[in-house]
Design a protein around this nucleic acid. Structure first.
Length: 915
RNA sequence: AGGCGCGUAGCUCAGCUGGUUAGAGUGCUUGCUUGACAUGCAAGAGGUCGGCGGUUCGAGUCCGCCCGUGCCUACCA
């Protein structure tokens, strides 16, 4: 072992050896256990959220693998239609071309090229994180079998009447020029205006006032609506107004949808450009006039002076024109909800277009049922509520996208517009008996990316082929994901799994929190607060970090702020913490909360933890002749050995319990505390004394030496799922046999492996308390650590005496005590500091060491603390209701405690008097 | 508007079905070049658990209201 812990060197070397070993592949023995990865965007990079999620999945997989399961962590990436197309288009733009100039086929080739170039980034990052995914089975959502799967699913759903095509109002992104599903709409509150416009009544000199946030849509108004009970307007229902600028005569209708209290109580109805208006239009048989084209420019169906104007230019012109006509009643500042595309950020436009839809209700019902009946569980359970809420109010899913990158919709049209759905053109011709004279053209659209992602749990395992993986691993065991994609992905996978596999895709859904920055802000490129997990692993200079954060900013005006914030938060850049430290940090932060704030100070703390493990191992190596296990006759060992074993057994039970309920934070805490506090701070220190005690026979010491090695081995195996690299490195160096194997294929420890001797364990607890008391006095009395002291004990029980006899050397060593004396009744006690240990008094003579007054002060402080507690205990015990109603063991415990407190109190008081 | 979550030490967070003196990491103070580790060791200070009320023998924990804060869903022009 190297003298210093150097994570980087260890980690890259070890990952390569794992990959070569083939250990990530299923062992094909034992019960199957499988996780499919939420496929990241193929051209993306790994962010902190991925790193966190991957760490959790890897902990689970490594744990189950060590438990002897036949494990598969199925890995792969998503083609991410919109995101990827956008990136490539931006690149083309830089090179002075566009997808339109290239044409569809060339463009697709360009995307594939880009995918090949950048697709490995995320893979490389995952490897740095130690992900034990089976890379030989890596899938991509546009792989051959997945394409076949998507087609098969589409055809079947179409044939069952669940997929249909229709001219509907959809969320339209005028920048990307594609339809989006409801889920891809991100609404934000933004400042705007509410324009109150006068609409002249037909044949009268009067007008009514309507309010709108979007005056440009007035060109497409086909009615004005009022509430049927509204007395102000009752007489106008059935009459008409003359729509300004277009001179169109449109009716005044009555509909309960109208809120009388809002604005004037009159609503303009534009069925082609508003979802509500569309419904009202349908109900009242209104004309649908679309006045915007796909780029959100005014279309030819509007008066020619507006034709071709961008929607916002049109707005300004219309407002101006109405003002000139004296028809603008009032303009009010207004806060409104703006729908934006979650990818492009463009303001969306409700637009009438031909799209493909999937009927959701029949699919949603069984998906609700499996969670209701407990077949499928959310962890934490509460998330099922969110899941139900969405599924119970589900809308049909617009699955077509006007993109070039994705799964092409398997539908063809003839010249008359007849639709044929099938695997390919020849098949369709055969099936429908269409001869060569009939021209068929394929639908130009592709499917929503989530359509193929919904099949992932089975398509990634080989479906529609009947593969070993599919047979063995479906349904998978657990899905690990964030709450932000419960609708997008989780619910849809459940629906598709039930529909096409007749089984749920996974038994449990573990929903974890989202990684936020130090200030609780979501990490995003635009905020400039993103961190690359690799930069926490390898470290990064401030300059490099700044460069990364301001590169390719969408809003360059943010640059200065980002630079300032970054300089403030990371004045010296980020140090290299290593993968294991980052993983341990993720594990210990993985509690049930929704936000996980990254705190580099904590990561540093866990880097120190790794360093601690490293050095403890070095110590053991040095003290055991290179981890050499000795032949021993002693089967029990010393009390300290029994104690650490029993602590270990408790810890491993705790770890298993917490892993079982996805509380990686509690498991990690238990491991941390055991390793550092129990093993390093106490056991190793005690073992030093034991091993170096010349009065003890080597045969006795050998047990402890072996125990150090065996405990280390068990600790490494316990820690391995969480911090795989350092544990592998040390474990392989334990002996020659290990060097040829891997800790990842070793057995996860069990408490059954350790006999625990409570009596020995208690002796050691007593010893710890004794040493702590001495140290406490030394420290509080400012007795230099090197200065040896003598101690005198009084009122020692026979057990105390026995323990002092057998464990005295530890006290002398760890407390810098030169002599321990028993006070005889005739002895005169020198002025001393006192500690109480049960019935026993421990005196430290202070002559020549410290001021007596100081000890007095110390005791008085102790006494006042004691008195406070005593008071509270007495109060409770003097309460009859408590005695009567509280469980007897609680009462008994408290009574015993009272006794102890009273004894301590009187003894301290006595001592104060003595001083 | 509805739903969900959060508010515990300076900071980042635990605290399970209510029961000793509310814990950890980090930071802070004091003392230590201890033969594994100063990425360390030992000791210590620091909290009226957001507020008010209720249930209970007993509340950080359960209930209600309020304040602050975050997220999700929804058709107010």
């Amino acid at each position: 072992m190297e003298k210093t812990y150097n994570p980087k060197e260890i980690e890259t070397r070890i990952y390569a050896s794992w990959e070569d070993s083939g250990y990530f592949s299923p062992s094909k023995s034992g019960a199957p256990f499988c996780i499919v990865i939420p496929p990241p965007n193929v051209t993306g990079t790994l962010h902190m959220g991925h790193a966190f999620q991957d760490t959790i999945m890897d902990i689970i997989i490594r744990y189950e693998r060590m438990k002897g399961k036949n494990t598969l962590w199925q890995v792969g990436t998503d083609h991410a239609g919109i995101a990827t197309q956008m990136v490539v288009e931006r690149q083309l733009e830089k090179n002075g071309t566009s997808r339109q100039q290239l044409g569809r086929e060339t463009f697709e080739q360009e995307v594939w090229k880009w995918k090949e170039e950048s697709g490995s980034t995320i893979t490389k990052q995952m490897k740095r994180l130690g992900a034990s995914t089976d890379w030989t089975k890596e899938k991509f959502t546009m792989d051959e079998n997945l394409v076949r799967g998507v087609t098969k699913v589409f055809i079947q759903l179409y044939e069952e009447g669940l997929i249909y095509r229709g001219k509907r109002l959809v969320n339209w992104d005028p920048v990307l020029q594609t339809a989006l599903s409801d889920l891809e709409v991100a609404t934000s509150e933004e400042k705007g205006s509410l324009w109150h416009m006068r609409y002249p009544l037909d044949g009268q000199e009067d007008y009514i006032v309507v309010a709108t946030t979007r005056p440009e849509t007035m060109l497409g108004d086909t009615a004005v609506a009022v509430h049927p009970d509204d007395k102000r307007y009752k007489h106008l229902v059935g009459k008409h107004i003359i729509l300004p600028l277009t001179k169109r005569k449109i009716p005044i209708i009555a509909d309960e949808y109208v809120d009388q209290a809002f604005g004037t109580g009159c609503v303009k109805i534009t069925p082609a450009h508003d979802f509500n208006d569309f419904e009202i239009g349908k109900k009242h048989g209104l004309e649908v006039i679309s006045v915007l084209d796909q780029a959100a420019k005014i279309s030819q169906s509007a008066p020619s002076e507006y034709g071709g104007l961008d929607r916002f230019e049109a707005r300004r012109k219309i407002v101006k024109d109405l003002e000139e006509l004296g028809l603008m009643h009032e303009i009010e500042d207004y806060l409104l909800t703006i729908p934006r595309g979650d990818r492009s950020g463009a303001i969306l436009e409700p637009l009438i277009t031909n799209q493909w839809f999937l009927k959701m209700e029949p699919l949603a019902k069984p998906a609700i049922e499996v969670v209701k009946n407990g077949e499928l569980k959310f962890v934490p359970e509460n998330w099922s509520k969110t899941y139900f809420e969405w599924l119970e109010n589900i809308q049909d899913w617009c699955i077509s996208r006007q993109l070039w990158w994705g799964h092409r919709i398997p539908a063809w049209y003839d010249n008359e517009g007849n639709v044929f759905v099938g695997e390919n053109e020849p098949e369709i011709r055969k099936k429908h008996n269409l001869d060569g004279s009939i021209v068929l053209t394929q639908d130009q659209d592709v499917l929503d990316t989530w359509f193929s992602s919904a099949l992932w749990p089975f398509s990634s395992l080989g479906w529609p082929d009947d593969t070993y993986d599919l047979k063995t691993f479906y349904p998978t065991n657990v899905l690990v994901t964030g709450f932000d994609i419960i609708f997008f992905w989780v619910a849809r996978m459940v629906m598709m799994g039930l529909k096409f596999m007749d089984e749920i895709p996974f038994n449990e859904i573990y929903i974890h929190g989202l990684i936020k920055d130090k200030n609780g802000q979501k990490m995003s490129k635009s905020k400039g607060n993103i961190l690359d997990p690799i930069d926490l692993i390898d470290g990064i200079s401030l300059d490099d970090l700044l460069e990364k954060r301001v590169q390719g900013l969408m809003q360059p005006e943010m640059e200065q702020r980002i630079i300032n914030d970054t300089k403030k938060e990371f004045p010296n850049g980020i140090p290299d913490f290593g993968t294991d430290a980052l993983r341990f940090n993720f594990a210990i932060q993985a509690s049930t909360g929704r936000d996980i704030r990254l705190d580099l100070n904590r990561v540093e703390g866990y880097r120190n933890f790794c360093n601690k493990i490293w050095n403890a191992s070095r110590f053991i190596k040095m003290n055991t002749n290179d981890f050499e296990l000795l032949n021993i006759k002693d089967s029990q060992g010393h009390a300290i050995d029994q104690w650490i074993q029993s602590r270990y057994a408790k810890t491993i039970d705790e770890v298993e319990k917490q892993f079982g309920q996805y509380r990686f934070d509690l498991a990690a805490t238990a491991m941390y505390e055991f390793v550092w506090n129990d093993f390093c701070d106490w056991y190793i220190e005690l073992a030093k004394t034991h091993i170096n005690d010349p009065g003890i026979a080597d045969s006795k010491k050998d047990y402890t030496k072996n125990n150090l090695i065996n405990m280390l081995d068990a600790i490494l195996r316990m820690l391995h799922p969480t911090i795989p690299f350092i544990t592998e490195e040390i474990w392989q160096s334990l002996n020659e046999e290990n060097a040829k194997r891997s800790i990842m294929k070793s057995v996860f420890p069990s408490s059954d492996d350790w006999k625990t001797d409570d009596e020995s364990a208690e002796n050691t607890e007593w010893l710890k308390n004794f040493i702590s008391s001495v140290r406490q006095i030394r420290s509080e009395m400012n007795i230099p650590p090197k200065q040896s002291i003598s101690i005198i004990v009084e009122d020692a029980s026979s057990l105390d005496c026995e323990r002092l006899e057998s464990l005295g050397s530890f006290i002398r060593n760890l407390g810098s005590v030169e002599a321990i004396m028993h006070k005889e009744s005739s002895d005169v006690l020198p002025k001393s500091a006192i500690a109480l240990l049960g019935e026993m008094k421990v005196f430290i003579p202070l002559e020549g060491l410290v001021d007596i007054e100081e000890e007095k002060g110390r005791l008085e402080k102790k006494l006042s603390k004691l008195n406070k507690e005593l008071e509270s205990v007495q109060n409770r015990l003097s309460n009859d209701a408590f005695i009567e109603k509280a469980p007897s063991d609680v009462v008994d415990d408290l009574k015993a405690k009272l006794k102890g407190l009273i004894s301590d109190q009187s003894r301290i008081e006595e001592q104060i008097k003595l001083l």
